[in-house]
Nucleic acid binder design. Sequence first.
RNA 1: GGAGGGAUAGCGAAGUGGUCAAACGCGGCAGACUGUAAAUCUGUUCCUUCGGGUUCCAUGGUCCGAAUCCAUGUCCCUCCA
Length: 376
Amino acid sequence: MKLEYTLKQKSTKNMARLGEFTYNGKVYETPMFMPVGTNATVKTLSPEELKEIGCGIILANTYHLWLRPGEDIVQKAGGLHKFMNYDGPILTDSGGYQVFSLAKPKDITEEGVHFKNYENGDKLFLTPEKSIQIQMALGSDLVMSFDECVKWPAERKYVEESVERTLRWAKRGKDVFNNRDEQMLFGIVQGGEYEDLRKHCAEELVKMDFDGYSVGGTSVGEDKKTMYKMVSYATKYLPENKLRYLMGVGDPIDLIENVMRGIDLFDCVSPTRLARHGHAYTKHGKINLKNSKYKEDFSKIDENCHCYACQNYTKAYIKHLLSCEETFGARLLSIHNISFLVNLMAEIRKNIKTDTLEEFRDQFILDYYGEGYEYK
RNA sequence: GGAGGGAUAGCGAAGUGGUCAAACGCGGCAGACUGUAAAUCUGUUCCUUCGGGUUCCAUGGUCCGAAUCCAUGUCCCUCCA
């Protein structure tokens, strides 16, 4: 059954919103953070661990699963949920980010985008229709339109053309999707840092009436102030009764700031990638457990954290695991980092209820960055 | 006892007269990472008051100039007895 969003409460001071949806009989609250599992697995973690952490929606990637193992195989397996043994909601990205990360400008055409398989050199061509068909075959719950995630900075003229193309692609994808009962389709707002382009893109998508809306083209190298503007320019024109998903954003402070700008869903590779690279989020900022100063530090990663890693292991032990390149270190840090963001979202929701999000943000910044923090 | 080979920065290993403070790899120390080509990538790694100083087993020598050539010594390895 299609997941249905209900708006429960709005802040009186900013655009923050509290909402919920039910999936397989379980109620999930938004705003929410969604960990990324590109290849139908959140790197190093099992579905059971994800549930224990308190994750709701997780992500998978159309592009990667299309190439390997192929959507037909996932379909034969009984769909993505069965294939990867995750019974919570799954969102699939459309391949739009790979337009940003893998394709060159000349590879982008009106019809679709040419890619070269980095594994074997095969020529690939992904179209909006194909992306939606793959996602339908995968059976994810939240399906993303195929879009162009534009680099930053970009010339206004280019962004203008790109937005129009992304709108045409959204329409083409939607026609193929044909309002399926069991899946939601999201339109993606692009438009770079240009307010009128964001507005135009949002309004045109809303006219097409999607099940939810994403804000894309952020976290591509811009400074935080610019990112926040991009988000405001988009959410301002989106309907209140639909989910809004900010794609690829996961820096802790960005979660708070963008909830205040009306975002419900976030995803980011940071917690898992940083974990594999030895870093941990803490209330007092990000730390690098590989640093020699943790060699004899027998304290928890974060005194305030109740995750499995913090309950049972010390910094010194995790540092040791990282030094030996033992995979358990990356797992423990992945558990911790995702927990940190999941817990942060819970704190955010609590503060929306009491309408104290701004005070919460100010205190968070003070704890995390110390005095004199400036948005960069 | 005899014959040969070798000793280079924390480790492994290039280099065999000037362009060598010495490639490269590992290890060490840091940094980066935002819809994952990422358990990856980048920087740094003799000392320094940034002028320079002291290095390639040790000592002596040849040469304008030596990690590189010669002599002696020390240690290690292989083979033959």
